[in-house]
Design a protein around this nucleic acid. Sequence first.
DNA 1: AATATTTTGTGATATGCATCACATTGCATA
DNA 2: TATGCAATGTGATGCATATCACAAAATATT
Lengths: 225, 225
Amino acid sequence: MATDCRNCPFKTKATSMLSDCTLEQLSANHLELKLKKGDSIIKQGTYSTNVIFLRTGLAKIHLKGPYSEQIVKMVKAPTYLGLPTTFGSKINQYSVTAVSDAEVCYIDIDVFENILYGNQDFTREIIQEFCKNELESFRRCANRTQKLIRGNMADALLEFSDNIFKSDTFNLPLSQAELANLVDTSRESVSRVLTEFDKDGVIKVNGKEITIVNKKSLIMISQNG
Amino acid sequence: MATDCRNCPFKTKATSMLSDCTLEQLSANHLELKLKKGDSIIKQGTYSTNVIFLRTGLAKIHLKGPYSEQIVKMVKAPTYLGLPTTFGSKINQYSVTAVSDAEVCYIDIDVFENILYGNQDFTREIIQEFCKNELESFRRCANRTQKLIRGNMADALLEFSDNIFKSDTFNLPLSQAELANLVDTSRESVSRVLTEFDKDGVIKVNGKEITIVNKKSLIMISQNG
DNA sequence: AATATTTTGTGATATGCATCACATTGCATA
DNA sequence: TATGCAATGTGATGCATATCACAAAATATT
């Protein structure tokens, strides 16, 4: 299953700077997998010594909260997954599930660490990624806890549109129940808010297809609640 | 102001493994400062190219939310602060403020990066720290958004007792207004919950001094809300 | 195509908590 | 010791939203 990493079209900035020799080492020590929407990539509570490279696709990071499953954030390729597990207890503390078809590479932690420490650019990229995530998590924390539902829903829609699909029209990759777990509300409220937004001419809802009609309004809603 | 890092009694695991030569470099390139409770360590919106080592003391990490200041988490020495700033935009995206007297060292990012990349153990420690923080932030996210106020207050008290002061009796390092910003509630609710807990015999409140009388109850409250 | 199962829409009701309002206490500074 | 300002205690009220209870629609399964 190991393909040649030298020809991988999904390299990140840093990996594209790795030497052919290093990439050969990577090629020989990874497992490539094609996943379908809904497939589990990382499962909370299980043992793992692999770092996972999400080559293509979209996934949700989620974990058991005191009352229900909590979606912490959405991630899109290309990105590494599971570092906290492999650098920590080796027991996954959270789950990652594909919400679209996806391709992943399983890389053994030893190989990954080898490459990491032997390569300053790579180290730097990983650390910068961690830094970005930390800031993001701080901001999310402040936003999600302070904003009302309409504000959080607006944020979620804007993120899908701006960061993930980069289009005003997109298909919701999550059910309303999942959206509720992402936005910290009830399934019913998600439904109500979506129809509200539609009635107000802010978005157009057509099954799972969302079109952002009035982005300015959506941003306003995001800001005041 | 630069003292000799070789004799610093506050080294972390990794820094204690640095060579004398490296530590000498560090000694020559850092600024040591003594801070009082309430002093600002990092100020959101300002420019910075320093990593900060919190040698002693307790601090809060906080940032402007859409409606009010949000305390994201409490940190205690020894720990590094400000990495996301120095590895990122160089503009602080959050504030850090001492909530006790504290000692800090300002280390220039170039020196820090030099030591970081030149030292596998150090890199590993920093990455592990990031991983720990990421997991913590996921858990906090799930807890804070799902639990009711009593549960979150219980969590905060348990954290002070178990992780920060390591004692059943401690002085609250935060005002009730700050606690509200940490626990995502109103100042009034903090007051009410504290008196509730006291009346129920779970804790004893004496001004700013808290004694955890019945830890089992507190854990129960943390778990069911 | 027919049936089962999941997902979604929407009203009615209950409730946790924010907000307002003000009294009280503690702490600092003159 | 007096005076002022900040921190805290506590009731009354209102509101956002969770929950319950179904109906309707969409999707999957046989």
